[in-house]
Design a protein around this nucleic acid. Structure first.
Length: 526
DNA sequence: AAAAAAT
């Protein structure tokens, strides 16, 4: 079966071909003919299997270019998803000349009204803004022939249902209605059917709800050890791109800050951020300016970002459908991916509920040790060093790391490790290896198990000691990770550091510095 | 219970 076997018009097929698509996925193969016939369809298929094209292609096919009315309306649960679907439909409809507009809150309504006035065959939007535009008479839906609920179960959930009903009232009864999602709980489906006429339910591979390309793991870990456990695992995994999901907006802020302090190129996204920031973060993540996206469930559904190799559920989702969608951000379009869900002992019940829905067992994983995280970073550090200066003797310096030092080093970035080991080779052994670490602020309280247990404080007292907290495994640092975009910066750092060491008087080591071999200074301190 | 969604 090829796309050309489906009864799509030439201009649509040309766009499909240009996008590099040849063979339709099962959901596309089964729902496109039904939708083209004008049938109402409930389409359920795993994440990342091309549902947008499944409803988008037949919808584009139906559009009459010479008719200036809005002929199709797509409703989405988040603003980013509305933007993404608009982009995808535009791509498939450009040959034909279909005008696709997205409308959503948090950005200028005037601009959106202007765009609608300039012509809109298809509108993709979020509920609140759609209703606002309808009220202002800037959006007329009496010409709509196709109504689509993307992430339909979410749109029909309480919290959205009233708005959805109000919007649907404005759409002619004669319309075609399409509902698509990876999950479709039976009670929600029954609500959806009320808005449809003799719907066909297409459900792909009923046995597996989750995408088979995602390897699913869980780690049982106490709340106060979660953060270290996750960062160590990330060091070992070395994800290309990853998404870390947190339970609340506040939590996402804290996690983002913590990850940045550990040197990850991370940014957070949640509903309290202004829309420009939200869109910028997604764009930067897609453009490899960010390696770790930290998110609430605002990013759980629909977002299609290639290169996401790992999804970390820092907080286990309490809603099992949310789990299915979250881990569906990886393993898309035939790529493989991994998901790791952190479960504290009192949350094991949620794990069972999730497995009950997915009919799939997650594999238990042991937390990575500091030694394993260290070894992983050592490899990266060595690669960097060998690239900077081909000095093999540096390798042996890593063997001098004692147990305490390994524990600390496990929290270093590879750049910092490389810098440190390099400094060992240019100094005589008794003088101080100088590593400047741009430490700015302490880690958020919650990620400080030392303090949680009542051992030692952070902040004020530590600063009074001159900011050296080498014995504290919760040191925090700035610095960056990843060698995609910061090569130049790193080179500068090496130069700067070596230069600084030349005219530097030796520092008197404290006992903990002697024990670990590390000296860490606050930013700007000498 | 949280998050999302209009201002």
């Amino acid at each position: 079966m090829k796309f050309t076997d489906l009864q799509l018009s030439e201009d649509i097929l040309l766009a499909v071909e240009k996008a590099g698509f040849e063979t339709p996925s099962p959901i596309q193969e089964q729902t496109i003919p039904l939708a083209l016939e004008g049938k109402d369809v409930i389409g359920q298929a795993q994440t990342g299997t091309g549902k947008t094209a499944a409803f988008g292609l037949p919808t584009l096919n139906k559009i009459d270019i010479d008719n200036q009315a809005v002929q199709a309306l797509i409703i989405a649960p988040t603003r980013e998803l509305a933007v993404q679907s608009q982009e995808e439909l535009f791509k498939f409809g450009r040959e034909k000349g279909v005008k696709v507009r997205s409308v959503y809150g948090g950005s200028s309504i005037e601009k959106q009204i202007k765009a609608l006035r300039s012509g809109a065959h298809i509108v993709v939007g979020t509920p609140g803004r759609l209703l606002d535009l309808i009220k202002r008479k800037a959006l007329k839906l009496d010409g709509v022939e196709t109504l689509i609920l993307d992430e339909a179960d979410e749109m029909l959930n309480m919290g959205f249902l009233d708005d959805i009903e109000a919007i649907i009232e404005r759409v002619p009864e004669s319309r075609q209605t399409l509902l698509f999602s990876a999950t479709m709980p039976e009670p929600i489906k029954r609500i959806g059917v009320k808005f449809m006429k003799e719907p066909e339910h297409v459900k792909i591979a009923a046995k597996e709800l989750t995408n088979v390309n995602v390897d699913q793991y869980y780690i049982r870990v106490k709340e106060n050890e979660k953060f270290d456990t996750m960062t160590r695992l990330m060091d070992v995994d070395q994800p290309e791109l990853s998404i870390v999901f947190g339970r609340t907006k506040r939590r996402v802020d804290e996690l983002t800050r913590g990850l940045k302090l550990r040197g990850f190129r991370a940014e957070g996204i949640h509903g309290d951020l202004d829309q420009n920031k939200r869109l910028r973060v997604i764009r930067d993540f897609k453009n490899d300016q960010i390696d770790v996206l930290v998110a609430t469930d605002v990013a759980a559904r629909g977002l299609d970002i290639s290169g996401v190799t790992h999804v970390y559920n820092y907080d286990i989702p309490q809603d099992p459908e949310s789990y299915v969608h979250r881990i569906g951000r990886t393993g898309r379009a035939g790529q493989s991916g991994q998901s790791i869900t952190f479960v504290s002992p009192n949350e094991m019940g949620y794990l069972a509920i999730i497995e009950d829905l997915t009919k799939k067992r997650m594999k238990g994983l042991k937390p990575a040790t500091a030694q394993e995280a260290f070894e992983a970073k050592k490899k990266v550090a060595l690669k960097k060093i060998e690239r900077e200066m081909a000095d093999e003797t540096i390798r042996s310096n890593f063997d001098k790391f004692k147990k305490d030092a390994v524990k600390l080093a496990a929290e270093f970035t590879p750049e910092e490790l490389a810098l440190y080991v390099l400094s060992l080779t240019v100094q005589d052994p008794d003088s101080l290896p100088e590593v400047e670490i741009a430490r700015e602020k302490p880690l958020p309280f919650k990620f400080a198990p030392g303090q949680a247990k009542g051992k030692g404080g952070r902040g004020g007292r530590d600063r009074d000691r001159g900011g050296r907290r080498d014995g504290d495994r919760n040191r925090d640092r700035g610095g960056r990770r990843g060698d995609r975009n910061d090569r130049n910066r790193r080179d500068d750092k090496f130069k700067r550091d070596n230069r600084r060491q030349d005219n530097k008087k030796p520092h008197q080591r404290t006992s903990s510095e002697k024990k670990t071999g590390f000296v860490i200074r606050n930013k700007g301190e000498r």
